[in-house]
Computed example of a mutant assay.
Amino acid sequence: MNGERRVPVVSREQKLVYAGIYVLKKMDLKPADGGVEMPLVLPSELTPLEDVLQELVNADLVEVNRRKARFEITRKGLAYLTEIIDEAEALIEEFDEESLEDAVAELRRRNVDVLRARFLWGWYDGELDDLVLFQQRRGASPVEPWWADYLLSDAFYEELLRDVARA
């Protein structure tokens, strides 16, 4: 890179929003369906999510349950998750039959954030449920084994943007 500093493809704030959406889904699902309980003292593989969880608490989407020693989704968090699901379903319903190129062109024409649309599509349809598998399917090398690290990495967002950049 010859000493050049890379500019991240998304800001830290954007990563916190997308990661928050991702974490809310993980917290809402049952463990048998890929859900994850978020203990107050996070295990090392989940420590990258500390700021994400703090942002969710600050937004009243998640609360601290000291008795159970874990984070839990609030009613406001469940309502927000419903809004996100509705947004993702509307995108899929409208653009499912379109080519990627046509869908991206239309989203850009409407001044819609194509990264958000791409993220929500993959988040909703399950493509992003297993981020290790997501990396493997795309030929990443090396594969980041800890999903929380990958979720907050530039590499993850670069991969999502690669899809829309081709369009």
Rank of each mutant, 00 (worst) to 15 (best):
E13P: 00
F119S: 01
E98S: 12
F95E: 01
L29S: 05
L29R: 11
V36I: 05
V104S: 03
Q136G: 07
V64E: 13
D96E: 06
D154H: 08
E87T: 11
V57W: 08
E37W: 08
L56T: 11
R162D: 14
E45H: 15
V23W: 03
A140Q: 12
L131V: 09
N2Y: 14
K68W: 11
F71Y: 08
D60P: 06
L46P: 03
D125R: 11
A79C: 05
A79L: 13
P8V: 02
I85T: 14
A88P: 05
Y150P: 00
I92W: 02
V143A: 02
E101T: 08
R138Y: 05
Q54E: 14
F134G: 00
V132E: 05
P8S: 00
R66L: 08
L16N: 11
Y22T: 01
G126M: 14
V132N: 02
M27Y: 00
A117G: 04
E50A: 08
D60Q: 05
A105L: 08
V112C: 01
K30A: 05
Q135Y: 04
R6Q: 15
Y18L: 10
A103P: 01
W147R: 01
G35E: 00
D163C: 13
V112N: 03
D86C: 06
L29M: 06
R116W: 15
D96K: 12
V143M: 03
W123N: 15
E45I: 14
W121R: 09
E97Y: 06
F119K: 04
Y18V: 10
W121N: 10
L160I: 07
F95H: 00
F71K: 00
L151W: 00
R116I: 15
